[in-house]
Design a protein around this nucleic acid. Structure first.
Lengths: 121, 121
DNA sequence: TTATCATATGAATAGATGTTCATATGTTCA
DNA sequence: TGAACATATGAACATCTATTCATATGATAA
């Protein structure tokens, strides 16, 4: 993946030791995985979406509720819910005119909790 | 925080029930916390930074090593390390010309693991 | 059917962000 | 001291993204 030519005539700490290079590289997930992981965290990296997820911690809510609770426009909420749903973090069910959203994954709690722990240090 | 005027003449599910509104709002951390949390996840929301963190899972590395291992420019890596350090996810120590970076927080593992679990479903 | 309400969607815009380029800082060695 | 190396930093640029506005879809009730 990394040609030896690339890592010559540079700093000589790890670069010239092929086994050390392999040790690090072999433990890395595939590029695609890492990209997907970053994409997932990107979803959590917006305060509007974080607020929506927190609101849904308590109970399922319709779009209108979320808008009113958080003081956001209906359109903005709808756009963000679309992103959350695409990433399987929330699910929806329709009840007449109203669409209810709820958390779709236990990992949401865990991920946010881990982040909070770091924040609260 | 949310005036009653705002939540009148809208959908009448949760909005008109003040106690339900309070139930959701009272469980929400302060806005500032939620903003900080989003900022933290934003740091994880970039594949370059994710790759750097993964590389540091194995061992401490200097900037040059990271550049070579990941096939990134020295400048790009340096900029990203700055962000990671500002968020207390990595720490650095200087040894002569070389600056070594290492993970600074056990939460990094946990957060990334949680994300990976979600990805691998 | 028609009016109204709840939600979704597309386009446009403004703001944020990652990389590159050029260059500065800091360290070692001759 | 000066040259070479490792890293850091600032500015510029291109890309991405969240919100808004306008409008469409879907459902209910009169």
């Amino acid at each position: 993946m990394i040609s030896p030519d690339l890592i010559i005539d540079k700093c000589d700490f790890l670069c010239v030791h092929e086994d050390a290079v392999q040790e690090v590289l072999s433990s890395m997930p595939a590029d695609e995985k890492l990209y997907d992981l970053a994409e997932l965290f990107k979803v959590f990296g917006d305060s509007t979406r974080i607020k929506i997820l927190y609101a849904l911690f308590e109970r399922e809510l319709c779009v209108c509720d979320i808008s009113n609770l958080l003081g956001l426009s209906q359109t903005a909420v709808s756009h963000q819910l679309r992103i959350l749903k695409a990433n399987k973090l929330v699910k929806s069910r329709r009840s007449g005119k109203i669409v209810f959203y709820a958390l779709d994954d236990d990992h949401v709690y865990k991920i946010i909790d881990c982040g909070m722990e770091h924040i609260n240090e």
